[in-house]
Each structure stands twice: as C-alpha cells, then as structure tokens.
Design a protein around this nucleic acid. Sequence first.
DNA 1: ATCATTTATTTACGCGCGTTAAAAAAATAT
DNA 2: ATATTTTTTTAACGCGCGTAAATAAATGAT
Lengths: 343, 343
Amino acid sequence: MRYNKIKNMAEFAALIGVSRPTVSKYFNDPESVRPSTRDRIEAALKEYDYRPNIYAINQNRRLTKTIGIVVPYLADPFFAEIARMLERRCIAAGFTPSLFSSHGEQALENTILDNLRSLKPAGVLLAPLGRTSDRKHIEAFCHDVPTILFDSNIEGVGAAFVGSDNFSFVSQTVEYLSRTGNVPCFFEMKDPANPNANKRRLAYLEIMNRLNLEPHIIKIDGKGWSFEEIGRQGALKILQEKALPTNTVLCSNDRLAIGFLSACHELGISVGRDEGCSIRVASHDDHPYARYTCPSLTTAAHDYESVSDYALSTLFQLIESGGRLEKRQETVFAARLIMRDSA
Amino acid sequence: MRYNKIKNMAEFAALIGVSRPTVSKYFNDPESVRPSTRDRIEAALKEYDYRPNIYAINQNRRLTKTIGIVVPYLADPFFAEIARMLERRCIAAGFTPSLFSSHGEQALENTILDNLRSLKPAGVLLAPLGRTSDRKHIEAFCHDVPTILFDSNIEGVGAAFVGSDNFSFVSQTVEYLSRTGNVPCFFEMKDPANPNANKRRLAYLEIMNRLNLEPHIIKIDGKGWSFEEIGRQGALKILQEKALPTNTVLCSNDRLAIGFLSACHELGISVGRDEGCSIRVASHDDHPYARYTCPSLTTAAHDYESVSDYALSTLFQLIESGGRLEKRQETVFAARLIMRDSA
DNA sequence: ATCATTTATTTACGCGCGTTAAAAAAATAT
DNA sequence: ATATTTTTTTAACGCGCGTAAATAAATGAT
C-alpha cells in the first residue's frame, strides 16, 4: 500500500497502463480479461488501495449486487439467527446483504420497503410482520422488486414463499405429548400477529380431531412483540385461577413458553416429565434460548439451514430469470422434534 | 398517484413548472425554498411518486446521510436491543441507519469496515469485537471516517467512546451480595474477547480488596460467542467437582449466568436468596432474557437509553464539527442494580 | 414608485463509471 | 508468413444529480 490516493478508475487504469474500459470489464467479471492483464490489475490492487465508487457503479446499473433482507423483529434471536445465515450465503454468492428490521411496526416496514426500492436491489428476502402488514404496500413493492417471502406467508404476494410446515410442527409435538402422557391444551395469544400462529392453532385442532381427542385452546391477552412477558402474564393468570384443563401445555411458540416457564417457577410449580412434576410444557420453534430454559424446553425445531438455503437459491433463480417465476410456489420444510426436559 | 413514471428530477421539475435546481434545493432542505414553491413541490410529490436517485445523489455528495452501525454479534439480544434504539434515533435525526454484524469474526469486521468506507457514511457507531479486533484496521478506518466506539473500548481509537461503567456494575453487585449474604466468587471465561470482561474482573478484585474480603475467581474454558453453552459447561464442571469456593456466584455477564442457571437446574441445585436455596447467582448486563430465567436473574443493568443517546449525540457533534473532536473523550454510564430472585 | 433584499431560474460544468462502436493490437490457427 | 479470432484501446455518450455564477423575478421596506 502506497500513500497515493487514486480517485477514479481512469487514474488507476493509467497507473497500470491499461485502458479504463478494461479495468471496468475486470471489475464486472475478472474472467473476462486476459490472464496477463488480470494479473497486472490484481497486482496493482494490492499495491494501491483503489475501490470503484459504488454510487457511480450503481447509478449505471439497472440492478445492483445488493440483496435486501427484512425481518419483522430483529431483537428476537430467532430472526437474528436466520438473518445471520442469510447474510453469510449472500456474501458467499458475491452479493452484498443489507439487513433491516421492521421492529414490529407497519409504518417502519413500509418505509423500509420504500427505501429498499430506491436501493435497486437485485432481490429481497422479506419476512413480513404478518397480519399487521400493509398488504397493498407489500404487493406494490413485490411488483417492482424481485422478492421472496419467508417465515410468514402472505397469500399470493411475492414470487415465492419459503418457510416451515406448521402442521409438521404441531403434529409432532401433539403426537409426542399425547403418546407419552396427558393430552395437551394449546396456549396462544388471542390475536396473534403472525400467520403461523393461526396455522398452528388450526393444525392443533385438526390433529386432535384425527386422534379423537378433545381440544382445549387457551387464549391469552396481550399485543406487541414482548411474547415472553405476554406468556408469563397469561400463564400467571391461568395458573392462579387453576384454569388449566390438562396438565400438559403446548405453547404456540417458544417465546410464550419461556414466559410460561418463568410463571411456573414463580408459582413454585415444577415442570417436566419426571415423576414429581406437576405439569409438562412443550412448544415450537427451537428458539436459541430453548436449550437454556429451566427445565430445558421440549420443542419442534425449524430447519433453519434448509429454509435459508432454499430461500436464497430460489431468489437467485428469480434474479437470473429476470425477476419473474412461472408460478408462485410455496415451499415449507418439516420440523424436527427436540425432546428435552420440559415435557 | 398517476401512472406516469418520472425518471429524473428534470422531468419532475418540468411537470411542476419549476427549475431542476430548485427541486434539488428542496430535497436538500425543504425550508430553503419559498413556501409557495414548497407547496407545489409537495403537492406534486403526492400525485406522482418521484424519489431522487440515491446513487446519483451520493455520488455528488462528499458525505451521505447514512450512519453505519456495527455490532459484534447481532444474535445476542443485548446488541439487537441497542441497535434498535440507535436505529430509531438515527431515523428521527433524518439519517439512514445501516446495520451490520461482525458475527464474532475479525475478517468479517474488517470487510464490513471496508465496505462501509466506500459507503461514505456521515458517521459510524462501532461496537468492536474487542480483543479479537484488528486494531490497525480499525484505526485506519477511524482515520478516514468519523467514528464513535461504543460498548467495547479500544484505547485511543475512534473520536470518542461511550459505554457503561464496569466498575459501577461490579461494585453494586459485589456490595449487594456481600451485604445480604456470603461473599461472591467471580465466574468468567478464561480468555474473554470483550474488554469489559477484563475491567469487570479488575473491578471485582479491587472492590474485594477495599472491603477486605478474599477474592475468588473461577475461570472457565471456551471460546467463541456461545456464552450460554460455555457458562453451562463451566458450571457443570465446577458444580460436579464441588469446587465452588462460596455459595454465591457473580457471573461476568448475564449470558454466562443463563448457562450457569441452566446447569444448576440440571443438577437439581436450587438457586435463590430464599431459605431453602443452596446457591445465589448474580450477574451483569440485564440481558433482555434475564427477567425470564428461573429464577429471575439479579443483575446490574446497562443504561441503554443514556448510552445510545449519548453515543448518537456525540456522533452528531462529531459530524457537525467536520469529523474531528478536540480531544478523544470516554464517557461511561453507571449501572443500576436489578434485584430479582436469583440472589 | 424606488431601491434593496431575498428567492428562483438559466446555463453550464463536473462526478465516476457503464457501455458501445470502431479501430488497433495481440494471440492463435493455418 | 498470412489469415483469423480474441482481446484491448480509443473515443464518445449517457446516467441523474450537485453545484456555482450570472441573471431574472418576486418580495419587502421606504
């Protein structure tokens, strides 16, 4: 590295003794120039630290090498984790990921999409807020930008959807719980923002019906994204009122379960599948912290890897095919039952 | 919204009947044009959905309106939470936040900074990896880009540092623990990547010395950012060997404590300050999940609000003063003791 | 109405790069 | 060595906007 500061591509090209268009070609595809010139360029790149101005580059490209990733709530480690995997894969594929969180707010989700549009990304991976999303806004966005929905589906919106098979989650947990003990009741928020929650409830009802068991659904109050606190408050209420229909609780998701376990501990109720325990608690998602609850949480795990892999490969396919897929396809991956100590 | 698609500012200006430079002025500062023209522009903005091309804008600005936020590990809810607050404040101040996570890797931290540099951000808020950071790389970056360090300090790097007062954390927990029961031993990783960990250990030693108490430090193995698992494994080992010097454990941070509590539960060791409990556990950070551990975790809380407020206002000051502050200042905020059930 | 001041317009250039077409040079094949 | 193909160069235009200087128009005070 010398102290020379190269201010543009022309200057850089002159320094090596090649023409500017050749350098430009090199940056767009190093393979497209003769090996000997490639070597000279790369040698110079090591010596002088020149980087093309990305704003000038992107002004003249219809599409950039940026991939937008939008999640509804980044403070939820589940989304942080999946965002991490997506980012990695983007980088590996030569794209630049750009991460955004809607922080649970419709207005913010909309602004993020507006800003994203003017970033002219090659593609976008969007996990929408769900029920609280502004459907029309998202639709309009997807019309202009190649977008794959993940985690939460919105029927008919986006070029494809990649997520988890809610039925698979619930069937595994319900089947396991009823096989090894009492029949589970279903614990969930009254007005879940996430469409997966609805699908899980329906799955619960259907599976209970199939197994010829009586379903019990406990709906608790609360809104927003503080699921742990909502779960805790809801559990405290139910437990104090002794209104639990069975001694086995299946929470809609792990974050509610974390709150539930917290409430149990406060009330001195022992949770687990052991003899001395008075209640079993299971859940869905395999949240990064599910391993560390007390007791550790029996749950059904997302296939993080497959979801993120497939979402990205679908997006790349979408990008290569010029932003349109023949048919909107929905792909869901099965869950994996994780048996721990809570049930 | 009509179906007309305006492709550039000239076209938009022509449509309203003003000149392009006037429109340009408006976008740079709506107050700088006459109210009557402002109204006309704003009316047109509602009718046609024109947005200036950000790449063209930024090419001609020495500095953009972007603020880079870099955290070491976004899957840690602590950083997710502080990133959320920082993002909000950026938007409120009319800037566009751009969030990056180093995912615990030096190489990635370096690439992020390289990319960030070419984004020509107005300023950057950087929470470095810490000990594993590439000091020279960060120094070089800070030389070119107005940068405020937060959370982890690197002596002499960046225009300023804003964080929490580790001494205040430890003094409050140690003082509380020794006042209400047995003297705490200090539970930490052998080679903590985060400089705060070192400061906390030193604070522990100093405070114990002041109180004329004998210090005990337990150093556990493990590297990486899976603190919960490291804490759990370390705790399992210590507890099984019955090598705990006192019945009161002060963990260096909450994530280790989460693992510690998990291990206690597995071994059937009851934690808390109640009569029947055999051990007390406390910690530092007030991690978003500390409220939901079993038992809930007694800890010392960061002043999130103050740290993020002050970091950003310092950054704005830095930006306004053209990227240089007279003197590098370090600002730390005191902790607040949160008494819960674990100690 | 007159002059001073603020605000807007016109004109023109620059930013750094993508891109293209034609000409030149280099590599490969005959 | 000559013909053919591939790569590079030259030259030039365009992208959409920032910005500056000179001019014109609108506003406000006297």
